[in-house]
Design a protein around this nucleic acid. Structure first.
Length: 306
DNA sequence: AAGACGAAAGTGGTTGA
DNA sequence: TCAACAACTTTCGTCTT
């Protein structure tokens, strides 16, 4: 296996890097960036997901290591080639082409490096499972290859990919949470999310409100009974088609609110609204629909008297 | 005083001509 | 491409606990 010791951090150019041979990781002590120094690992990991892209093959190519190590515009190529060229014009041309070439081939490498570091950061902030992280990385890579990052910030595409991966694995996060973790405006995330999933033809089922319940419930410190009650309510609501067309978080929030009333663990609309990332108004609207169409009024009244 | 409620106007996205 | 439209938000005034 080819290994190469990095001399400096690609992010902050610090020389103060630390290599952990056990974990096979390299860490910059100044900026905290985790630098993967074994390109071979990445290549193999990626190729597991799709094998139709030979152009970005990394394994065993010493050049990719130097490219990554050197960054842009440094080592311009074999100097012996250069001295064979006679005219100034040819030398000029040689330089330009060489530079251009390196730029192109390293652009994707570099982008992926930085993007994956960002992806890991956001993913661990949100405590997402490994499988989701890998899915997101796969999506991101496809996006880069299709040139979808152009005109968008790398971070927003990372966030979009993560958001999509969460939905696919039925562990949805709200756009607000993703925004908080990534520092990108949720509008922007939503935009890139839609764009990327459309361009890559990734189909995503509409998210199930019940998927949000466990997280919201624990954020509100609600009991397991309340939690299952709200899931029950959601099922009833779905059966009479109350859920279609509405935002899943709003419905989940309202169900949780109703359940908290019924079980005498009342939370204010404000509290529920905050964790669910919707407004009180939305909860009120959903809440009204729920108790009306599901004749829950009695149940709520009953437990109120106690 | 805080929470719940509802009306009205505004936002960003979808849809259909 | 544009206008109508649905869902949701913001803001604000009023009622209830």
């Amino acid at each position: 296996m080819i290994r190469k010791q990095l001399k400096e951090c690609p992010e902050c150019a610090s020389k103060n890097i630390f290599r952990d041979t056990n974990k096979g990781e390299t860490i910059c002590r100044d900026c905290g960036l985790v630098i993967e120094d074994r390109m071979v690992d990445f290549g193999q990991e990626w190729r597991e997901f799709d094998d139709d892209s030979r152009s970005k093959r990394r394994a065993g190519a010493p050049t990719s290591q130097t490219q990554f190590d050197q960054g842009l515009g440094t080592e311009v190529g074999s100097t012996s080639d250069f001295y064979k060229l006679s005219s100034d014009r040819e030398r000029d041309r040689f330089f330009r082409l060489r530079k251009w070439n390196i730029r192109i081939s390293t652009a994707i490498e570099r982008n992926l490096k930085v993007a994956l570091a960002e992806l890991k950061r956001v993913s661990s902030f949100l405590k997402l499972p490994k499988s989701v992280e890998e899915e997101a990385a796969r999506i991101y890579r496809q996006a880069v290859q299709k040139g979808l990052v152009r005109g968008r910030s790398m971070e927003s595409v990372v966030a979009g990919a993560l958001y999509a991966a969460c939905r696919r694995h039925e562990v949805p996060r709200t756009l607000d949470e993703m925004g908080e973790a990534s520092g990108i405006e949720k509008k922007e995330i939503g935009r890139t999310y839609r764009f990327v999933t459309r361009e890559l033809e990734i189909s995503i089922k509409p998210s199930n409100p019940a998927d949000y319940i466990p997280r919201f419930a624990s954020a509100l410190k609600l009991s397991a009974e309340t939690q299952s009650k709200s899931v029950e309510i959601l099922e009833m609501a779905r059966d009479i088609e109350l859920t279609s067309g509405r935002g899943p978080t709003g419905i989940a929030a309202a169900a949780l609110y109703v359940a908290s009333l019924i079980h005498g663990e009342k939370r204010t609309q404000r509290e529920v609204a905050d964790v669910a990332g919707v407004t009180e108004v939305t909860i009120r609207n959903r809440y009204k629909e729920l108790i009306k169409k599901l004749k829950l009024t009695k149940e709520v009244e009953k437990s109120k008297k106690k």
